[in-house]
Design a protein around this nucleic acid. Structure first.
Length: 187
DNA sequence: TGAGTGATTGACT
DNA sequence: GTCAATCACTCAT
C-alpha cells in the first residue's frame, strides 16, 4: 500500500481511504482505528456543507487536501472529514466508522459503558472515542501533527451504496464500506 | 430577529 | 418503532 492515501477527488478518495489507519495522539493518550466506512461529499453537491460556497464554517473544506474538517451538529455531536481534491473545490470524505486498533481502554473511558463493537460504529461515536472536537478543525493528517494516516489493511470487498442521514441528493451512491466489517454503522 | 433544519445518538414505548 | 437533546447555521420575515 502507498505511504500516503490518494486524496484526488472525493469520489475516488472515499473508497481509497477504506482500510487506512487513522491515529490521534492526544494529551490523554493514543487512539487509532482502521477506516471501514466513508462518504464522499463533492463539489456542486447539494448535500455538502460546501454547496453554498466558502463560509467561516466550511473554510477548511476549500483548503488543501489532507486536513481535517470537523463540524458540530445536532447541538451535541462532532463529525470528522478528510479534505480531498485540489484546493478550492470544497470536497471532503466523511469518516463514518472505524475499527478500533489502539487505545481501546481510552475509547471505552470516553464512550462510557458500551459494547466494544459500538465504540466507533458511527460518525459521532468515533469522534468521541478518538477525542476529536472542533479544536482539531483544520489539522493535517499528512504533515506529522497529532493526527496521522498510515497504510493499514487492504479491504477484500467494498460495498457502494447511498449516503445516510441526508435529505438532498439521496440517490447518489457515494457511501462506501468494507463488506462484512462489524463496525460499519448501518448496512 | 425568528423559525426551521441538520452528514446523530441514546433512551424510552 | 418514536422522540428528545440542543447549537450552529440558513433562509425568510
Amino acid at each position: 500500500m502507498k505511504p500516503r492515501p490518494d486524496l484526488g477527488y472525493a469520489l475516488d478518495a472515499a473508497p481509497a481511504l477504506l482500510g487506512w489507519l487513522l491515529i490521534h495522539q492526544s494529551p490523554d493518550g493514543l487512539t487509532a482505528g482502521y477506516i471501514v466506512e466513508t462518504e464522499a461529499y463533492m463539489a456542486s453537491d447539494a448535500a455538502s456543507h460546501s454547496y453554498r460556497g466558502k463560509t467561516p464554517r466550511t473554510e477548511v473544506m476549500f483548503g488543501p487536501a489532507g486536513h481535517l474538517y470537523v463540524y458540530f451538529t445536532y447541538g451535541m455531536h462532532y463529525c470528522v472529514n478528510i479534505v480531498t481534491g485540489p484546493a478550492g473545490r470544497g470536497e471532503a470524505v466523511l469518516i463514518r466508522a472505524l475499527e478500533p486498533f489502539k487505545g481501546l481502554e481510552l475509547m471505552r473511558h470516553r464512550r462510557g459503558n458500551v459494547p466494544d463493537v459500538q465504540l466507533t460504529s458511527g460518525p459521532a461515536k468515533l469522534t468521541k472515542a478518538m477525542g476529536i472536537n472542533k479544536t482539531h478543525n483544520g489539522a493535517s493528517v499528512l504533515s506529522g501533527g497529532s493526527f496521522r494516516l498510515l497504510p493499514g489493511i487492504k479491504p477484500a470487498d467494498i460495498v457502494q451504496t447511498t449516503r445516510i442521514g441526508i435529505s438532498r441528493e439521496t440517490t447518489k451512491p457515494w457511501r462506501f464500506y468494507i463488506a462484512g466489517n462489524p463496525y460499519v454503522s448501518r448496512l
